[in-house]
């Protein structure tokens, strides 16, 4: 697989074209905003927090396929997770996108997010892949 087709895997392109949980969430309990001043990408993540877990998530974004797909997949994978679990998943994803675990396979917990592995060859794009995660996880841990 070329670097390019590895970067733009089917799953990524699909989430880009048909983003899941797109739009503003009714009765959200909080939202987080992310902005990449370098490229102007913007994302807003909305979530509804229950007593134990995250009940629902949605997002709105203007950005590249990588940031769009990552946000879309995030809204799926974090549903039903506790705040703590969400933070752990984010840390796990981050470690696998950056140098720390560069050659390792993505662990199973990350599910579809493994499709983001191609980003590792494009260091400038790692920020795109983590934009929505930062928008949410930096806020929700407050």
């Amino acid at each position: 697989m070329s670097d390019l087709t590895e970067l733009y895997q089917e799953i990524i392109l699909d989430h880009n074209k048909y983003p899941r949980n797109y739009g503003c969430l009714d009765n959200y309990t909080d939202k987080g905003e992310g902005h990449n001043p370098l490229c102007g990408d913007e994302v807003t993540v909305y979530w509804k927090l229950g007593p134990e877990d995250i009940k629902a998530l949605s997002f709105q974004a203007r950005g590249c396929a990588i940031s769009q797909a990552s946000a879309s997949m995030m809204t799926q994978i974090l549903k039903g997770k506790s705040v703590e679990e969400a933070q752990e998943l984010f840390q796990l994803l981050r470690r696998h996108l950056t140098q720390e675990c560069e050659d390792e396979e993505f662990p199973e917990e990350l599910g579809e997010l493994a499709a983001l592995a191609g980003v590792r060859k494009y260091p400038a794009r790692i920020k795109c892949a983590t934009l929505a995660w930062h928008a949410m996880c930096d806020k929700i841990s407050d």
Binding site: Y8, G63, C64, A65, Q68, Y122, R125, C128
Partner: peptide, 9 residues
């Protein structure tokens, strides 16, 4: 296609 994706492609 977002401009950043175009640039990469």
């Amino acid at each position: 296609i977002h401009p950043h994706d175009i640039a990469t492609l």
